[in-house]
Design a protein around this nucleic acid. Structure first.
Lengths: 96, 96
DNA sequence: TTGACATTCAAGTGTTTACTTGAATAAATG
DNA sequence: CATTTATTCAAGTAAACACTTGAATGTCAA
C-alpha cells in the first residue's frame, strides 16, 4: 500500500483526497500513511488553499537508489570472482 | 529486521545459524525471514554439506535500484521546471 | 457568519507480522 | 548404526499495522 502510494506520487503530486479516491480507502487512512512516509522523509505536504499538495521527495529516493546501486556493484564483482574460483576447483577435481 | 538481514548479506554470504547468532533471534525466526526474502527473489539458499549458504541476489537489487533511479530523475526534472514557473510567477507578482 | 469541504486527531478493531517453543528431516561424524 | 549439528515444519502468541468511524480544526465562498 505505502509503496503503491509512492508509485502514484512518482507520476505527479496529489492531494490527500485524490489518493483516498484512487485507492478506495478513507482520507483518514491516507493521512496516516502520509504521516509515516513524511517521518521517513519520503514525501512532504504543502498547504495550498484548503487542500494539501503531497509531493514525493527526490532526494530520499536518490539516497536509497544509491545505496542499492553501490551494493549491487560490490556483489556482482564478488560473485564473478567466486565463479572463477569455483570453476578452477571444478577443473582440479576433474583432472585428479 | 528484514532490511538488516539484507544489509548483512551485502557484506558476505552467511548460513542460517550465522544470521541467527548475529541478530540474536532463533534460527527458526531467521528461516522464516528467508522464506519471504526468497519468494521475493532477493536471496537464494544453496545446500552446502549440512549447512546452507544464503546469498543476496544482485539482479533483484539491481532492478529495485533501477526503478528508483528512473523515478528520481523524472522527479528532479519535473521539479526543476516547476521551480522556474514559480520563480516567474513570483517576479510577475512583484512588478505588478 | 454560516455552510461546505479538506484534512487531521483520537480511539477502536480485525488481520498480519515477528517472533517463540517443540517436533521432524537430513547430512556429517564417531 | 547412533549421535550430533543445521535446518525446516507446525502451531501458538503478543505486538504492530492498516484500516475504520466519529469528532475537531481550518479555509473558502455565499
Amino acid at each position: 500500500m505505502r509503496f503503491t502510494v509512492v508509485q502514484r506520487l512518482a507520476e505527479s503530486d496529489a492531494t490527500v483526497g485524490d489518493l483516498a479516491a484512487m485507492f478506495d480507502i478513507t482520507v483518514q487512512g491516507v493521512s496516516q500513511h502520509l504521516d509515516v512516509l513524511e517521518k521517513a522523509g519520503l514525501v512532504s505536504r504543502h498547504k495550498e488553499g484548503r487542500t494539501r499538495r503531497v509531493r514525493l521527495e527526490p532526494t530520499a529516493l536518490s539516497e536509497a537508489a544509491g545505496w542499492m546501486e553501490a551494493r549491487r556493484r560490490r556483489l556482482e564483482e564478488r560473485y564473478s570472482r567466486l565463479d572463477e574460483v569455483l570453476a578452477d576447483m571444478a577443473q582440479e577435481g576433474d583432472t585428479r
